[in-house]
Design a protein around this nucleic acid. Structure first.
Lengths: 198, 198, 198, 198
DNA sequence: AATGAATGAGTTTTCATTCAT
DNA sequence: GATGAATGAAAACTCATTCAT
């Protein structure tokens, strides 16, 4: 018997992140991934049922990591401001050593959410929840401005204006574009306005 | 490729935006676009050399519009705060009636920038420039905090954390992830902190 | 526009019968069928959704023909013996000019019945019914032996004809289809005729 | 390829008959056969050079058995009618306890004959010969009709039995193999018996 | 002898693009 | 200019067979 050498599943995932990052998911060829992983193309199918499952596994893992990081911080920390500091730090640190993963995470997010499975969706939604809860808590404690809508803030937080626009385009009834616009302006302006002016 | 009565080209672009928005650029079929445009699939090739050129034309047009809007505001308005208000308003208004265009703009931006032509690149860069200049002006006038790096702010402004991460992933030498992180935190926090706490 | 020349659907079906006959359905390559039909392989998919649908269409057509032939005879003829003569004649005539079709009909019948659609199943079962009814009628009229089980007879009868046809299709010089037809009729009729009638 | 303790080869053949019967030869996977045989897929290749050789061995064995059975009967029995009775009985008995083998025998016969080896062909042809000889003998003895062509009769006879067996193998509850056997014998004998004898 | 992970040739199918009408 | 039938290159995926252990 030919023993499993190393961790081929890991190799394939790493190669896929690298290839998806360069070519984009849709343009990525299974053959290129195999080549990058140093295996034959058929071998990929011993570990993943198809190309999409590879992307799914990548996102499952990323969102699970993000959720765990934020969840830990959420329970360890009491002060909303400290929570924010540590949460943003940890997300940046997560991608710090993996720029290719960051690219895939950003560019293919919209693709994978159309076919996300339960595990992925669950971690994704739980993560957004944590963020909203931190904001709500800050508002209750009169630390954060009460006029900030937690939902809109989350959108802003997880993708800025681009992501906000995307969400609105997908479901125009759920979001009020005027309110979004004013919120964005308020957030950005108070973010950049000099204290002396305020 | 020859220019015709002028509305078939428009029909194809509109149909493409609609189809790219639903299916994504890579999954979109030329046949579906033709169907949506009410023409035969071969006719598309009288107006565009290939599928990619359609996407290119869409982005060319969007970035040209954005640039013109912001450029006009930039020359009409003196106060940096007013510039900001009107600029954000106009970008939101641009997409207000075209959610499908917003989706395409957000999801396919990374795809098209790899093969952008001069015109597109020029308008894209000129637009970023205007934003940076507004910020710089505000800082010079002591209206904006001086510690905000205009480059980083532009990234944040045009895509929030996701886009920020993406930029960094694409070129890690150009951006300092620690500085980005701190800037993001500062922006977000001052955006949401209650005046009383500050 | 490139006009449809000739009948490509017909060409594909004919080419498929020929290729399925030589190679067997499972070994037949779509490329070979296309080559035989004088078209590009992609063109097949403009007329059929996949390989299996081609086989299905072949069998649909054959069983529809057989049913129509036997049904017409069944309603035109009163005497069970005459029904038999004419029915066997017409089935042999159906395949007389199409040995390849006979081969496919015999060899792939079991394959297609696993995935038969309503139309095919309906014609298949109605055909079997006609045969059983002829037998039952003959028994009621005391022309056929009453101890013959119509179900078993039908199996044996169809199996015999099918295999006989196959042998002829494999080597048309070795067998004389007219003589085969008469021998089959003679064998079957003396097998079922009541002693009193003989 | 080396012969081992003698029951792995048997296990593989049995598993293959079972799998070929359910899936058909072309759709059958070597892995499924190995699983059914309780061994690893690579082990199959210690006993058979490839997939086709398994099918070949199955048919070699079946036709050898049929030949031996009929040959023994042929030499033990003098009366053509008795020969027929015993021959049909023995063929039905051969498959009685092995419906899966019957299915494979019927469905894959045409596949294997294209690549039959000498041993298989020899037993196949010797078996047909015995049948033809019984018929010829009966004709010479004025027991069977002289106008029956032995070649056509054999085709019809074998085809009828094969299909009957197949129907039974597909649904053993619907058909009674004993009754089938007797019906087949009755049909065939009255088909060939000379009127003077009857 | 036995294993089962790995291979990669081979096939179906898709779809952007072409071109005869 | 317009059409849409036809093309065929390209890619995902399968699975019989091999071979290191």
């Amino acid at each position: 018997m030919r023993k499993k050498e190393g961790n081929k599943e890991r190799d394939i995932l790493d190669a896929s992140v690298s290839v998806f990052s360069c070519e984009g998911y849709s343009n990525a060829k299974m053959h290129t991934i195999a080549e990058n992983a140093g295996i034959a193309s058929g071998t990929i199918y011993l570990y993943f049922t198809n190309k999409e499952e590879i992307l799914l596994k990548i996102f499952e893992s990323v969102w699970e990591n993000i959720f765990r990081l934020l969840d830990t911080i959420d329970s360890e920390e009491n002060d909303p401001i400290c929570k924010f500091h540590r949460m943003i730090d940890s997300v940046f640190e997560l991608f710090d050593s993996k720029p290719a993963l960051a690219t895939v995470f950003v560019n293919e997010q919209h693709h994978i959410m159309k076919r996300a499975n339960k595990l992925l969706l669950s971690n994704y939604q739980k993560t957004l929840c944590i963020c909203e809860n931190v904001l709500t808590l800050g508002i209750q404690k009169h630390i954060f401005k009460k006029e900030i809508d937690p939902l809109i803030f989350s959108s802003f937080f997880f993708g800025g204006i681009r992501y906000t626009l995307q969400q609105w385009a997908l479901d125009q009834k759920k979001y009020n574009i005027y309110k979004m616009r004013e919120t964005v302006k308020s957030l950005v302006l108070s973010g950049i306005l000099d204290a002396k002016v305020q």
